[in-house]
Each structure stands twice: as C-alpha cells, then as structure tokens.
Simulated assay, not measured.
Amino acid sequence: MLTRSAPLKRSAMKPWRRKAPTAAERRHLDRVAQMGCLVCGQPSTVHHVTSDGYKRLPRTHERIVPLCPRHHMIQFGPHESVEALGHAGFRETYDIDLLAVAKGLWEGGI
C-alpha cells in the first residue's frame, strides 16, 4: 500500500478548461459542421485552425473549417491529414489556406 507523506497542492493541479462557445460561436460551429470537407466534399468534422503555417495561434471557435476525418485526423489519413502534414504542409499539398478560409467563414463571405 502506498502512503502519501504530504497532500497534493491544489494550485499545481489546476483543471484544464476551455471557454464555452458564445451563442454566435455555437451557430457558427453548427453551420460549418454541416458543410462538406474543403478537400473532397465528404461529410465533415470541425477543425480549429491553430496555426498560420509558421506560428501557433490561440484556439478559438471563430477560426474553424470543415474537414472530413481523412483530411482532419492523423489516424484516418496519415499522409493526407492536417494533423500529419501541419498547416503549412496542408496548404502546400492542397493549395488551401485554412486560416484564410476560416476567416472568410466567420465573416460570412465564404
């Protein structure tokens, strides 16, 4: 049996929480989730754009794009997905600037 000599400090164990989406962000998430994949048009999941291809950007519900599992997640598309290629590699491979598309979707222009 293991015993602990001192209790764990709560300050060292802060829970990791994401901010809940606002009503406008929720509507945007729902609208983008209904779109087809940017690459192939298949049913999509929502991908949060967290890079401009060179630097990391904070995660926000405003910067999202529709990607199917194959083009989104590494376990479904190890040589085709944004998770495998990174944002710069994805742009180079598919000639799609995810950040520009996400901004356009949020502003309602695309």
Rank of each mutant, 00 (worst) to 15 (best):
P58K: 14
G86V: 04
L57D: 04
T93N: 05
T3S: 11
P15M: 11
P66G: 04
V32S: 08
T60C: 00
A6N: 12
E25G: 09
P78H: 02
K103T: 08
Q34S: 15
E80W: 06
A23S: 14
C37M: 10
L57W: 01
T50N: 14
G53S: 06
G86T: 03
K14E: 15
G89W: 05
L85E: 07
A102L: 03
D52S: 08
G77V: 05
D95P: 00
G41L: 13
R70G: 01
G104Y: 03
L99D: 00
A24S: 14
W106K: 04
K103C: 07
A84D: 12
L105E: 11
G77Q: 10
V82R: 00
T45R: 13
P21G: 04
G89H: 02
F90M: 04
K19Y: 03
H48M: 03
F90W: 03
H48R: 07
H87T: 05
L38G: 09
T50W: 01
H61E: 08
C40M: 12
R4G: 07
G109V: 13
R4Y: 15
R56P: 00
R91P: 02
H48C: 08
K103D: 10
G36M: 03
P43T: 09
E80H: 08
A84S: 15
L57P: 02
